[in-house]
Design a binder for these strands. Structure first.
Lengths: 342, 342
DNA sequence: TTGAAAGCGTTACCAC
DNA sequence: GTGGTAACGCTTTCAA
């Protein structure tokens, strides 16, 4: 059923019907109610493509899905999708086949130029991210999940990585650990830098130095977590505690500890960052894992809200939120053993 | 830049340009080449919403994202997205907040009626799935990832769950295991039924019976895997081998074994189904995990192709593919220990 | 092989 | 508060 037919059937003009259904103020309450009821009764639904053509809005928000961090991705996207569906806005997912950074920019360019989306969510930013420059130049509204340090104003939402790791490090220092290993994210990303910075702050506050040799970098997978933990724990002078960048990393760390005959908790303390996945929970690990926690799903929902705010005219420079994290102590972090190793 | 301007600039009619860019046969090769080059040079791109309005196509395929199995979901979606992006088709993700089955149907109904998608991918089907009846009634093209046993013809792609588990069970029987536990999926789903059936086939072929008390059901999470494995392993007469439904389930099984002081491989054999995730690999587990393997990402890509075939007029009843799985033996499945327990 | 013009189903500007 | 009508930017029939 088309607008014209529907309007004719209920004896109103297409204009009025359109206005009633779109919530314009100039329609009388009685008319609006009647139109809404009749629309349901007669099964009228506006053609979404016609609406989009007429309004010039795409009705969708774009997000580029990278191979790395995909388990995080889906959790974040659920959060976005839940929020956006209330406003009838779609999520358009674009995959990134290769990870050459030139290709990556091309994908963003195409997405922006095709005008299939009203805004784009950028994730895992670098301190001076070329995607931000590009989207800004193309005048495509965007929001950064994370932060960048470019001069270009941009809307963003980030968790306080620096504070999270600072507190986690402090916690381990309080327990008496002096040699703390850290499995950080890939070099070059803002959050990796922020976490390093938080770690450094905590150490220096106690008169200890940041130890380049105890901080390893890599993606947040079980495998890389394992390998890097093995490297740390096979040292002459191994750390007595490890900060793991993610739950997957922590799985690898637990495995490494076991394979070396170390007991997590008593021989090796572990604290990880937990994005809160329904399929893998810190509490269920053996032993239960101490974490810095922040819900990726909630972040996704909030990002969706902020993007909509952006689209309704807010200035990008006015949008920026730093979320605190929780530090949750469980059984994987314990006071250092007296008497050293063996 | 609009079609009209662009056409004027290169001295052709909008009609010809449209045809050239859309690959219609009646345009001369020389003209087409020229139009294509100029489009790139001048940066002309058709307005996607206008195209969609004019053609009546939504240019998107819908998929409903359930909370359960979300780590599988994103892997499957990457596969779809990679394939669809070549044809400029979007994926529209709709979240499912609650999991009441009435709500679920409503979501599919809304998605279908809104005409925002040209087709819908249905996953985790039941033997007689109401979503199939609904979409069929609404005349919305759809493809089932998995299978159903309803009379309604439907396009589908599934992996051979029955054969996979039959072979995995045979493998364990060959190793001398007589008591085999199984952590299957949620009851009521087709694949759960198929896996049970494969398990039964293998057992009965050796004159053994299917043991209801050794087969537990639940979603594929680490936590449920752990709990169910604990239940099995705490029996008076515990199984010497366990079939785990997924990698996450296997994580839970390994954990359960460890917490009971059992060594996976020598004390307890484990075989799991592996959907091939980049962030968690069977080979890296300790010990390396024997698996039945089938790439969820490849399946997503193929589903995308089949959906496009469906949209270009193929009959749903002609589309159906059963994919074999690989059985990969690693170190988690070994001959049963002589001499029984202790 | 190319072009003119009539849709596609809305929205939004102007009148009333 | 309501209605007429010109966009929105493309595709597709029909004619040349």
């Amino acid at each position: 059923m088309k607008l014209k037919e529907f309007a004719a059937q209920i004896g109103l003009s297409p204009t009025t019907v359109s206005r009633a259904l779109s919530g314009y103020p100039e329609v009388s309450d009685a008319t609006r109610r009647r139109v809404e009821e009749e629309a349901i009764r007669l099964g009228y639904r506006p053609n979404i493509n016609a609406v989009r053509l007429a309004t010039g809005r795409a009705g969708a928000i774009g997000i580029v899905m990278s191979q790395a961090g995909q388990h995080q991705f889906s959790e974040f996207m659920i959060g976005m999708a839940e929020r956006l569906s209330k406003n009838d806005i779609d999520i358009l997912v674009t995959p990134m086949a290769q990870d050459g950074s030139r290709d990556e920019l091309q994908i963003y360019r195409r997405l922006a130029e095709s005008r299939r989306v009203d805004a784009i969510v950028v994730h895992s930013p670098k301190p001076d991210d070329p995607r931000i420059a590009l989207l800004s130049k193309l005048k495509m509204p965007f929001l950064v999940h994370g932060r960048s340090h470019t001069k270009i104003a941009h809307a963003w939402l980030d968790i306080d990585n620096e504070d999270a790791i600072r507190r986690a490090t402090n916690h381990l220092l309080d327990l008496g650990h002096k040699q703390i290993g850290m499995l950080n994210g890939p070099t070059g990303l803002t959050f990796t830098r922020d976490r390093a910075s938080g770690h450094r702050m905590a150490l220096e506050q106690r008169g200890l130095g940041y130890r380049d040799d105890l901080v390893l970098h890599g993606e947040f997978t079980d495998e890389i977590g394992f390998r890097n933990a093995m490297r740390l724990l096979s040292r002459q002078d191994p750390p007595t505690a490890i900060l793991a960048g993610s739950m997957m990393t922590a799985l690898g760390v637990y495995r490494a500890a076991r394979s070396l005959g170390l007991s997590v908790g008593s021989d090796l303390s572990v604290v990880a960052h937990d994005d809160v996945f329904p399929f893998l929970t810190a509490e269920n690990m053996a032993p239960p894992l101490s974490t810095t926690r922040s819900s990726l799903r909630s972040a996704g929902g909030r990002v969706a809200e902020l993007v909509m705010r952006l689209l309704s005219g807010s200035d990008a420079s006015e949008i920026g939120e730093l979320w605190p994290t929780e530090l949750i102590l469980r059984d994987s972090s314990r006071p250092i053993k007296e008497g050293g190793k063996e």
